[in-house]
Structure formats: structure tokens, C-alpha cells
Amino acid sequence: MKSVIADNLVKTYNKGNVKALDGLSLDVEEGTVLSVLGPNGAGKTTTVRILATLLTPNSGSATVGGIDVIKHPEKVRQIIGLSGQYAAVDETLTGWDNLVMFGRLYHLNKKAAIKRADELLERFSLTDSAKRPIKTYSGGMRRRLDLAASLIVQPKVLFLDEPTTGLDPRGRQEMWGVIEELVKGGVTLLLTTQYLEEADQLADDIVVIDHGKVIARGTSDALKREVGGERLEVVVDHADISKTLEIVARVSGNKASLDEGLRRISAPVSTGSMALMEVLRSMDSEGIHALDVGLKRPSLDDVFMSLTGHAAEVEEVK
């Protein structure tokens, strides 16, 4: 069963001169995680805002939990949670006060709101700072509190827009654990992220969008296979870059790319270790010493660059 369906969504700004979504369609199977990836300005946040009833599309349709987001937004809001790019909390209140307030806004009685606030503060390791004003919280603490607020009513569908922005590696791992626990409990999740390893870790399915359109969809492994087989990578001194580029391109039969900062030259190869050995022999005959060399499987970064020609970045809010 599809918990989320978006069909041919179009959203324009500036009197139609800027098209944020251009016929975007996607769906999310109940109890799964769909990760939406795309470069800056691709339309990720706009998609989330339409599905969460915060924006109305110019055309197209969408349902969440079988409910039309345009005709019955109030019913959609009863079954969803949303954590946006920026923490939606009151900085003058304490963390505890914020969660109790959110509980009351969701029509919990005072006792139930306090109980739920205490549960969520413990779950997100915020109990010790519960009575401190939000303005004293770090960025990571605010992110955790914001996600906690989106879980007040235990939603059936959860929209997370860049949920781990500002978290350190430990905080990100903790957040991943919470997300995985929610999905195991039956929550359907649509996730946008700038961290490709996050999609790799959490997503059952991945959608790549660019210029407001879906340009690819599949599992992480399937998308990586589309890029090709293994990639050969060689790191050399600056003086040897030009000649090494020629060698890698000739042996691989593909255009070699260069990361100038890392002095790393790479190209997709179909013959794996055979290509690696041939490159090393050719470099040796030219008197070139490899500082580092190896083969690796394509990453989601490679998929991104191959499909969009851009790196993944945080999307600006419209």
C-alpha cells in the first residue's frame, strides 16, 4: 500500500518565472523509507512542504495516508509529523516547556503532554538540559528537540527535511538509530538529506531529482550499478598529474577525472585488477610513483555527479 503519492506536481514562484517543481511524481510504500536526493535548488524542500500541506501546488495532486493534501489538509495534519531544515521551537522557553506546549497544541491533556515530553526528552538524550532555555542549546541539541516535537502524536507518516544538519558524527548516528526504530514500528518516512551516506544507511528506495523532476529512482545498489563497475583511483605528485591522466584514460577507455586538491585521478574501469596492474606498469615505465592507488565501488556521490553534474548541497528555503 502506498502511504504517500505525488502525481505530476508543478510549483512555480515569481509569477511563474521560477519553476521549483516541474511535473514531479513519486510514491512511498507503507512502512518504508524513501530518500529524496538532489542538488541545491532541485525542489526537495518544496516537495516536502506540499506533502505536509504547507504549500499548495499550481497543478498536480498528492495524497498522504490516502487523504488528499489539497482537499483535506486538516485531516493530513492529524497523521503526519514534520521536522524541517530549521528548528521550529521557541528559544525563550525551555526544552521541556516547548514539548509540553506542542503536546497541548496537539490537544493532549496536561498530564499526557507532560508524560510525552518526559519520554521524548529521555529518548533524545535531552533530560539533563530539559529545563534550560533553547537559546542556550547547541545546533545539534535543537535538531534533536525539533525531531522530538514532530513525534508528539506518534505520526503514521513522517517528513524529515535535512534531519541531521548540524549534528556531529555521534549525534548523527544516534539520530539514525531513532529513525530506524520508528520505521520498525511502522512509520512511513520521506527523508531529504545532504548526506549521501545517510541515504545509504536508511533508505529502502532513493529518488534523485534535479530541476524539479525525478531523474532516477532505485535502491542504493541499483543506482550505483547504473554508474558502472569499479573505479580506479590514483594519487600522485603534482608534477605527475598530466601524464597520469593520460595513462588512466588510455587504460580505462574512459575520460579520467581529477580532484586537484587531493591530486587524485579516477576513472571507471571494466576490467578491475587487470586495469590496475596495467596502469601501474605504465606509470612505472614513465618513472611515476603512485602515492596511493586502488579500486573502489561507485558511491552515491558518484551517482550524484553522474546524474546531475553537481555535488549534493543543502537546499535553500524558498
Rank of each mutant, 00 (worst) to 15 (best):
S220D: 14
R123I: 08
I70P: 06
R172H: 14
A249I: 00
L120K: 12
N254K: 11
L158H: 02
T192Q: 07
V214G: 05
E74G: 03
L51Q: 07
T94H: 10
R263I: 00
V153K: 14
L99K: 04
L145V: 09
I67P: 14
V314T: 11
K11R: 15
K110F: 10
N17T: 13
D97T: 03
G31I: 02
K131C: 05
P163C: 11
R250P: 04
L190K: 00
R281W: 01
P133S: 11
T193V: 05
G294R: 02
L26E: 05
A117Q: 12
Q173C: 15
L82F: 14
R143N: 10
V64I: 13
A267W: 00
V178R: 07
M175Q: 07
E278S: 07
R104T: 11
D146W: 14
N8C: 08
K44N: 05
V183Y: 13
A88F: 02
S220I: 05
D200V: 07
G177C: 13
I215F: 11
L93N: 05
E286S: 13
A6V: 03
E246K: 13
D161E: 11
L262R: 12
R116L: 04
V314P: 01
S125P: 06
G228R: 12
Y195H: 07
I152V: 11
A130W: 06
K44I: 00
I241W: 05
T136G: 11
K135Y: 15
N98T: 04
D237Q: 14
S35Q: 00
A20F: 03
S129F: 07
V269Y: 06
V303S: 03
D22R: 05
L191M: 13
T188A: 02
I50K: 08
Y13N: 03
G66T: 03
L262Y: 00
V293I: 11
T193I: 08
P268D: 04
A239L: 09
P73F: 00
I50D: 11
Y195W: 01
Y137H: 12
R143W: 12
L26D: 04
G103C: 09
T271E: 10
D128S: 13
R143T: 10
D284A: 14
Y137W: 13
A199T: 01
A311I: 07
M101V: 09
I114G: 12
V251N: 02
G81A: 06
E74T: 09
A275W: 00
S273H: 01
I241P: 06
M283R: 03
P298T: 01
I247M: 06
G16T: 08
L55D: 09
N109P: 06
T32N: 13
E246V: 11
Q85E: 09
G60V: 06
G60H: 04
L291C: 02
K15V: 10
